[in-house]
Simulated scan of single mutants.
Amino acid sequence: MPTIRDVARRAQVSTATASRALRGLPSVTATTRARVEHAAAELDYVAPFNAASLASGRTNSVGIVVPYVARWFFGTVIAGAEAVLREAGLDLVVYGVADAPSRSRFFEQMPLRRRVDAVLVLCLPLTDREADALRRLRVPVVLVGAAVPGFSSVRIDDLSAAAEAVRLLVHLGHRRIGLIGEADPAPHGFTTPALRRFGYLRALAEAGIEPGPGWQVAGGFTAGGGEAAMARLLAGPGQPTAVFAMSDEMAFGALRALRRNGVAVPEEVSLVGFDDHELAAALDLTTVAQPVAAQGARAAELLLDELRHQRPPTEVVFPTTLVRRATTGPHRGA
């Protein structure tokens, strides 16, 4: 089996230069890179997982720390990042931290030490201890959906986006507006639910609306949770004429509950979701669209930039768009 040394010998360059050329680093001229790539192709050379360490100690891999691997949002962010990193010749190593014990164990043992060149953290608001543990790795770290001083981050403005969704409902004449959100405190200390709730409350306050008892229910950011939450809103006092769900998946469940209870949408209850999930258009759901895959891709680009050029930390805030579809309409009494 040919080695990186064989490739270097065939291309008449040093082993370090051959390694840098095959990893796409900018310190190699185009002519030299082409010669190395040609030599590798002639020898049918395939770089092993840790081949880059021969020259620089690099592993050609990026670690992704994620709370829920199987959920749509996180999977879509990972897919966006993976496309960029794969193009750069880097592999992904995914670390799931689904609950408090696994999260604590991960940051105590730090299993990615010396196994990755950079780290992408999805939506976890880091404690000081966790942030320090990542800093000790001495590799680039980028956050998606959270912000910590000293690290690059990619996110949206959750508060403003949620407020815009609720303002639409107010504009349509609705005064009894329910919220399907998350339990307090949120799992993992997620900040997104609180920010979206503040946006909801801000829009109500601007319209002079005082939230009624039972207007805010937890849906756990799942379709099943959204269905149960909507059922509670329908059974409570002062049934809302409109509902803002903090995620499209909860909105999907809410639509199911409304249908099962014979409630017409939007004639009797208007509904707005959040995300623009791939099924949102099929269900004609009004929603706040955020560029989920693009956030993963941009985070990967920031990682590559820091790896190649040692750039200072950068904060990127993506815009959101309110997409009006068939689940919202004017209040009957408006």
Rank of each mutant, 00 (worst) to 15 (best):
T3P: 04
D248P: 00
A228H: 14
G238W: 06
R311H: 13
V166G: 11
R86P: 00
H174L: 05
R167V: 06
L134E: 05
P291R: 05
G226I: 00
R155G: 12
V154Q: 05
T15L: 14
Q310P: 02
A281T: 11
T3K: 03
L258M: 13
G253K: 05
H277D: 14
E210W: 02
A282T: 13
L172N: 03
A146M: 00
D128F: 03
A186T: 09
L54P: 02
D284W: 07
P213Y: 05
G226H: 01
I78N: 07
A229K: 11
A47N: 01
Y68N: 13
L54F: 12
A254L: 12
G145Q: 02
M110E: 00
R259C: 02
G236I: 02
A231W: 08
R196N: 08
A8T: 12
V119L: 04
V97P: 00
L179H: 15
R311K: 12
E87Q: 15
H188E: 08
V46P: 01
G63N: 09
M1I: 11
S153F: 06
G262S: 06
G208S: 04
V292I: 15
R33K: 10
A51D: 09
Y45F: 15
N60P: 02
S27T: 15
V36F: 03
A289F: 08
R33M: 06
R20Q: 12
G329R: 02
P111W: 00
L307R: 06
A326Q: 13
R35K: 14
D99S: 00
Y45E: 04
R114C: 04
A228D: 13
P140G: 05
A254I: 11
V66M: 01
A229D: 04
L122T: 08
V62D: 05
A70G: 12
P67Q: 12
S27A: 13
L90M: 15
A162E: 06
S102D: 01
G75M: 01
R175Q: 14
L285D: 02
L201T: 08
N50M: 13
V28S: 03
A297W: 06
L54R: 12
S152K: 06
A165D: 08
D6I: 03
V97F: 00
A207I: 08
E82P: 05
P291G: 07
F106S: 00
E249A: 11
V69Q: 10
T31R: 15
D6M: 04
L169K: 01
W215Q: 13
A281Y: 05
E37Q: 15
A223R: 14
A299I: 07
T17Y: 06
R5L: 12
A264Y: 07
W72R: 12
A39C: 04
A294H: 08
S102G: 03
L204G: 07
L90R: 15
Q239Y: 01
F318S: 10
M230V: 02
G181D: 10
A52T: 11
A203I: 10
V93F: 11
R332I: 11
R33G: 08
I180P: 01
R86E: 13
A254V: 11
D44K: 14
A294I: 05
G226W: 00
D305W: 07
Q290H: 10
V154Y: 03
A203N: 10
V65G: 02
A18Y: 07
A334M: 09
